[in-house]
Design a protein around this nucleic acid. Structure first.
Length: 555
RNA sequence: UGGCCCAUGGUGUAAUGGUAACACAGCGGUUUUUGGUGCCGUCGUUCUAGGUUCGAGUCCUAGUGGGCCAACCA
């Protein structure tokens, strides 16, 4: 049997297990989100790992919602999570499970533990329990309830389920250790009383299992072979294994890897929720959010996100991935597939003084130089045009090869023009350029012999379609957001969204499609936002083009 | 300051006891009717000290640095 070469330490474990015949060579993973928020790019790493690993080694992957805390979980999140995983391109077949499906079995497992004398009902308050637990350097003192009899515990636990006690008045704890340096082994809580409406089980239960008494047991019930989670669960592993042993259930194996950290990004679901609730962003799918739904709306493709997950690799050391890598993978893909169009966001009027009034030409412009099959389209040209403000400088620096007084530049797919006169308003702002064009310099049949280095995008003024453009940039202005102590409002990038309500667009964009990825030439990659209407198209900037000039000139 | 995990260019990841490599970022050049793309080049890496070994990024010990753990969250 020929196995694919492992590309990280987890795959090495899997390969070893297959070779040794563990679980009959079966590989079964799971992705276990808690439905208390939307999935983000960090989850994409985990999804790609769990689904990718199984696919690579002939296994399967379950989707399991870890819904043991009804106070925080909602159906809306379940729906969003399912949609996002599908969109990313992964399929869990009919294996969609919920920890809440196992509540009855989990309850019976707890009974088993009590009967073995390995769990007890504790009446202490949270403060008392924390106090009794001690610290990593000091021993725990047993609470007075630790020595209750099995019969008493059985009766109490039954009555906990039966709703005879107030919320928080009792918990079920495992009886493991009073002095382990691993705090998770100092009689961890297994069940708590919480009267909250559960999005799936309704009001059937008033006791809910804790993570440690739900996750591993769900893994076992589903016969998961490799239960992959992030590093912060590493100290839970001894408890995970203890429960498998004492409960005598299927021995899933927990393996930990380092979660994703990204520069200029925030990955905590709790803080993401705060951004939404405080109105700092316009919802979970705000294109500035690094949620899957935000990235989708921003114009990222599923394959680019998968490629990103592949490139960042899997390891155990803490990492901080450069945002530039995420931008690289989407540029790489969009460069291949995006339709090139011309849009002027900050216009200056250009009048071609020697071009006949009322004349118009249709100029053929290629749609995608990277893809011949994309063909070409016709763009109208006339005497009155718009060009970008930043493509004209009155006092240009060295090596400037865009337009300047007396200077020449080519209009993309059209003619070479020369700037003859600069018209300003009373504030000294440039409002219009009077230019002449060279009639024999037409693109593709240039007989003029004039050489220019600058090529500008343009839009014919009488033909222009006015659409909205939303220029997105990174949400945070500090590199390591997680390490910042500053209040959120001080680290938010004030220019993370700049709206241009009336950008000048070539007329074809009136019929822009949500299924097409666009490159606004020389500006960046854009996609249609769902806010678009038939009358008003709205475009989101996914990412800018690399800008060699800006880099050089700001050095 | 108890225990556990981790340590390879600026950032990531590989090298499985035998010549430290790949990508991103940076820098330089070239091509170009997008200052985009492509192509070429360049920069720069094994935390420290001991030990084992013919040979150590890899194994052992200690140190140093970073991270995690004392929620009725997951």
């Amino acid at each position: 049997m020929k196995l694919p070469k492992p590309s990280n330490f987890i795959e090495e474990i899997v390969v070893q297990d297959i070779k040794s015949g563990k679980h009959g060579g079966r590989v079964h993973t799971r992705f276990p989100p808690e439905p208390n928020g939307y999935l983000h790019i960090g989850h994409a790493k985990s999804i790609a790992l769990n689904f990718g690993l199984a696919a690579k080694y002939g296994g399967i992957t379950n989707l399991r919602f870890d819904d043991t805390n009804p106070a925080k979980e909602e159906q809306e999140y379940v729906d969003a999570i399912r949609k996002d995983i599908k969109w990313l391109g992964y399929d869990w077949g009919d294996r969609e499970y919920y920890a809440s499906d196992y509540f009855e079995q989990l309850y019976r497992m707890a009974i088993k533990l009590i009967k073995k004398g390995l769990a007890y009902v504790d009446d202490s308050t949270p403060e008392e329990i924390a106090h009794h637990k001690g610290t990593p350097t000091t021993k725990a003192t047993p609470t007075p309830y630790r020595s209750r009899t099995i019969e008493e515990n059985l009766d109490l636990f039954y009555r906990m389920r039966n709703g005879e006690f107030d919320d928080g008045s009792k918990v079920l704890r495992a009886k493991i250790s009073l002095d382990s340096p691993n705090m998770h082994l100092r009689d961890p809580l297994l069940y708590r009383i919480k009267r909250a409406h559960h999005h799936r089980t309704g009001d059937k239960w008033c006791i809910y299992p804790m993570y440690d008494f739900a996750h591993g047991q769900s893994d076992s019930l589903e016969k998961i072979t490799h239960s992959i989670c992030t590093l912060e669960f590493l100290p839970h592993r001894p408890l995970y294994n203890w429960l498998i042993k004492q409960l005598e259930i299927f021995p899933s194996r927990q393996i930990e890897f380092a979660r994703l950290n990204l520069t200029y990004a925030m990955m905590s679901k709790r803080k993401l929720l705060a951004l939404v609730n405080e109105g700092i962003v316009h919802g979970w799918d705000d294109p500035r959010m690094l949620t899957i739904s935000g990235l989708r709306r921003r114009g990222y493709t599923p394959s680019s996100i998968r490629e990103f997950a592949h490139r960042i690799g899997i390891a155990k050391r803490d990492n901080m991935i450069d945002m530039a890598l995420l931008e690289f993978v989407i540029r790489e893909e969009l460069n291949r597939i995006a339709m090139r169009v011309m849009v002027v966001t900050h216009p200056i009027k250009v009048t071609i003084t020697n071009y006949p009034e009322g004349k118009e030409e249709l100029l053929s412009i290629i749609n995608n130089p990277e893809d011949e099959s994309a063909g070409s389209r016709e763009v109208p040209f006339s005497k009155n045009l718009y060009i970008e403000q930043e493509d004209f400088m009155e006092n240009p620096p060295k090596k400037w090869f865009r337009l300047s007084p007396g200077g020449k530049a080519r209009l993309k797919g059209a003619y070479i023009i020369q700037c003859d006169e600069v018209i300003k308003d009373s504030d000294g702002q440039v409002t219009e350029l009077k230019c002449t064009y060279f009639h024999d310099s037409k693109s593709g049949q240039d007989q003029s012999g004039i050489k220019v280095r600058g090529v500008l995008h343009w839009v014919s003024a009488p033909h222009a379609y006015e659409g909205e453009v939303r220029l997105y940039d990174r949400l945070f202005k500090v590199e390591n957001v997680g390490a910042s102590d500053l209040p959120t409002e001080e680290i938010i990038n004030p220019d993370s969204l700049i709206v241009v309500p009336n950008a000048k667009m070539e007329p074809a964009l009136k019929n822009a499609s949500p299924d097409t990825y666009y490159q606004f030439m020389r500006k960046g990659y854009f996609c249609i936002d769902p806010d678009s209407t038939d009358d008003k198209k709205v475009f989101n900037r996914t990412v800018t083009l690399k800008d060699g000039w800006k880099r050089k000139s700001t050095k």
